[in-house]
């Protein structure tokens, strides 16, 4: 049923706490984890991969305790970590053949050719985009069933980003496969994610199906007079931008029932993130 289940996960640091994180990733689906830098995205991923010791909660991968699961079936991209920079592509292929039982050398070199990655230089000479391409390729070439991707589209040019997102979408066409991807490039997640989880300051503040998100949430732009007249229980947050007040509506139907003369604009995930992080919930009409 689920390829990844996280329940009541907690991790305490001196200056940061990951608090009561709950995630359920069904087979055949993609969860997009969004949040500011330092919000806890990478810490969540590290916990799932058993790179850090957790203080509370449970994590299951493929219905088994995460500590008992071999990473043979998991493909991983970590933003800040890879093989040593002095290695070349052929070295990495040799290593992966040793580490993964199902390493697909032919597929690996097919991608290397396709994405024009040079084989004769060490990866320290790669651009950040080329290096990210290589990391993504490595995650895709051993017939994994779960991809855990931390900022995997970082530094990629738009064309390759499109290609990679397409690969990810194809990956979940196999209904046994799932992807858990964190990104601050929210437009990427808009394209591929089935669920959006929004994390802020170590806590999940929104966990919603993407379709439902677009169905429920919207933005209304109003001037100061209208803003004063609108009941604050009909919107979640507001953000003042020059003379315009942007209202984040979390129940479009309810809002339109009362204020049918206003036009609700479609929202994108970036706007939603901005409203949640920077918006205010008390508008001080007094």
């Amino acid at each position: 049923m689920y390829n990844l289940e996280v329940e009541h996960l907690e991790k305490n640091y001196d200056d940061f706490k990951l608090d009561d994180i709950n995630i359920k990733l069904p087979k055949g689906k993609i969860i997009g984890l969004i949040g500011e830098n330092g919000s806890g995205k990478t810490t969540t991923i590290k916990a799932i991969l058993n790179l850090i010791n957790i203080d509370k909660g449970s994590i299951k991968i493929f219905n088994k305790d995460y500590k008992d699961v071999s990473h043979e079936d998991i493909g991983v991209v970590l933003d800040d970590s890879f093989f040593s920079n002095v290695l070349k592509i052929d070295d990495i292929n040799i290593l992966m053949k040793h580490f993964y039982k199902r390493w697909d050398e032919i597929l690996f070199y097919k991608y290397v050719e396709e994405y024009k990655l040079p084989r004769d230089v060490s990866i320290k000479k790669f651009s950040s985009g080329m290096k990210m391409k290589l990391k993504v390729i490595c995650a895709l070439c051993h017939k994994a069933h779960l991809l855990i991707l931390d900022e995997a589209t970082n530094g990629l040019d738009p064309v390759f980003r499109y290609e990679i997102l397409d690969l990810f979408s194809k990956f979940v066409e196999n209904k046994d496969n799932s992807i858990f991807i964190s990104s601050h490039i929210t437009s990427d997640l808009e394209h591929i994610a089935d669920y959006i989880i929004f994390i802020d300051n170590g806590k999940i503040i929104l966990d919603i199906k993407k379709k439902e998100l677009f169905k429920r949430f919207g933005i209304v732009d109003v001037d100061i007079e209208d803003f004063k007249n609108i009941d604050n229980s009909y919107y979640l947050k507001y953000l003042k931008y020059k003379d315009i007040y942007k209202l984040l509506i979390d129940d479009k139907d309810k809002f339109l029932e009362k204020y049918s003369n206003y036009k609700i604009k479609e929202i994108n995930i970036e706007e939603l993130m901005l409203m949640f992080l920077k918006g205010e919930s008390e508008h001080g009409k007094d």
Partner: peptide, 17 residues
Amino acid sequence: SYDENSEVDKYLLSLPL
């Protein structure tokens, strides 16, 4: 030192090791 510079350990432990 090389491992530390590229944070290789994190990546290694994300592999089946």
